[in-house]
Amino acid sequence: MKRRHLVRGILAGLLVVATVIGAMELHRRQVEDVEVAIGGPFSMLAHDGTRVTQDDLTGRRSLVFFGFTYCPDICPTTLVQVASWLQAMEGKGDLIDAYFVTVDPERDSPERMAEYVSYFSDRITGLVGTVDELRQMADSYRLYYARIDLEDGNYTMDHTAAIYLMDGDGTFFDAITMTASFDEAVAKLTRLVEDG
């Protein structure tokens, strides 16, 4: 019977569509859950020797990102970008604090971070923690980092590259990814200042 085949076909088709929609919804919820969970307690030494904790984010708008000074390519590229966004926000960007957190506390001292970040901008604060303090912040920010040993005895670090925007309550507002254009980034920062 042709008709029965048709009905079966339609039912099968509907089942596939429903499954896909269900899977997409599940994925969307999972992604949102992860985003909501970014942020939380941390305590780090700023490059000027003061201590910065989660409480310092309250009433401010913060930009938190991770890297290390022995990084030849992506970290300096990101720092130059962040510096240019902050410059573009001049005037309405006074509320924004930018934190560059090292994932390599073994090699990055506060002094080294001070010299490093001030090369890019006086608006960026370098943060250094002990191994435990970095672990705590990594847990709060869902940060992945791993030491990768090189053959010559040196090592490099893999790490999460996203730039997290935190609102006035110190909770996650948005993220800027590596591939964002200058205009997209500035638009997100503007929204952070206005709505965050």
Partner: peptide
């Protein structure tokens, strides 16, 4: 330098 969909960069 490579970056995956998970936002993790590696060199």
């Amino acid at each position: 330098t490579t970056s995956g969909g998970d936002g993790i960069v590696a060199m």
